[in-house]
């Protein structure tokens, strides 16, 4: 059985009267790639700040790599590498100098640090830019160094707070590949984001956080089962009839989501529901252009759990 490297029970954090975290219970196993998904203000960053010992919780118990967060904050910090949301790098230092500086704060110095810095530059495909100042880097390159800076001391746990914000798809995919390799090598990754496609693509387990609470957790499949549906029918249309669409919405409730150019219908039985929907559309004078079958998305899961879309 794998070791529970992060154990959280009854965690609470208030800022005055605002409850940023309400009673979080969560265990994460070693080597797990755990995605913490939630809208802005859900409590993702506060959770990271508490786990990194920067914020003291109001209640609850947290153990990181076997160390109690309040009793052994230094050991907890040594076990963690944190990739903040901001590009927390010094623009006037080179990529290598940044890595050596941040590694040095964790006691990694000398030849060991230099070798590790070279290794990370190679992993992130930035060897040839190691001596360039950060201010000359593109956004994607800075993001990669931002991650590398958290890895120099070889932490057991890597906490990443929305680390791919504002970068191009190519850099993002490269980061996913590197993170997957880290995960395969036993590094536990806690990854917060509000990009659902990221979580679906790279995380082995997902926690959905909203209003400071983890409202669901499990693998993607386990979460899909929460909705009671297995697939979605996506019907695109050219001409619509608002009245009829409203009628359908009233009839099917949470199973159906209506957009301007399509409807998405969650189902556990496509062969039963697809003909029924086509018939209804025809009867309602809705001109169909395209029909697709898709697996239940996290968006649908989030919608069914909270009654609203992730970005609302």
């Amino acid at each position: 059985m794998l070791m529970k490297i992060v154990q959280i029970s009854g965690l609470r954090k208030n800022f005055g009267k605002i409850e940023a975290i309400r009673n979080i219970d969560l265990d994460i196993e070693q080597g797990e790639f755990f995605g913490l998904l939630g809208p802005n203000g859900a409590g993702k960053t506060t959770t990271i700040n508490v786990l990194s010992t920067v914020l003291k919780p109001n209640a609850g118990e947290v153990k990181i790599n076997g160390f109690d967060l309040l009793k052994n904050p230094f050991n907890c910090k040594q076990s963690i590498g944190i990739v903040p949301q901001e590009l927390a790098l010094y623009n006037e230092l080179s990529a290598k100098e940044n890595l050596l500086f941040w590694g040095g704060l964790y006691g990694i110095t000398g030849i060991k640090a230099r070798n590790r810095a070279e290794e990370l530059l190679k992993i992130f495909e930035l060897t040839d830019r190691g001596n360039s100042l950060i201010k000359t880097f593109s956004g994607g390159m800075k993001r990669r160094i931002n991650i590398a800076a958290a890895m120099l001391h070889r932490p057991e746990i890597l906490m990443m707070d929305e680390p791919t914000v504002g970068i191009d798809p190519q850099s993002r995919n490269q980061i996913y590949d590197v993170l997957s390799d880290f995960s395969k090598n036993g590094v536990t990754i806690i990854y917060t984001t509000h990009y659902m496609d990221e979580v679906e693509k790279i995380c082995s387990r997902i926690g959905i956080i909203d209003h400071g609470e983890i409202i669901a957790k499990g693998t993607l499949e386990e979460l899909r089962r929460i909705t009671g549906s297995a697939e979605t029918i996506v019907i695109h249309f050219e001409r619509k009839n608002d009245q009829e669409l409203q009628k359908m919405k009233n009839e099917f409730g949470e199973l159906i989501t209506v957009f301007d150019d399509k409807i998405i219908f969650s189902t556990d039985n496509v062969s039963r529901d697809l003909p029924m929907l086509i018939e209804k559309c025809a009867a309602s004078c809705i001109s169909l252009t395209h029909i697709a079958l898709e697996q239940i998305s996290l968006e649908t899961v989030f919608l069914s759990l909270t009654g609203r879309k992730l970005r609302e």
Binding site: K77, Q78, I82, P84, E86, A88, L105, Y106, G107, A149
Partner: peptide, 13 residues
């Protein structure tokens, strides 16, 4: 403002 202070605080200093 740049976020490096936060990162310094994350580290064991």
């Amino acid at each position: 403002e740049d976020g490096t202070l936060k990162r310094l605080l994350y580290s064991p200093v």
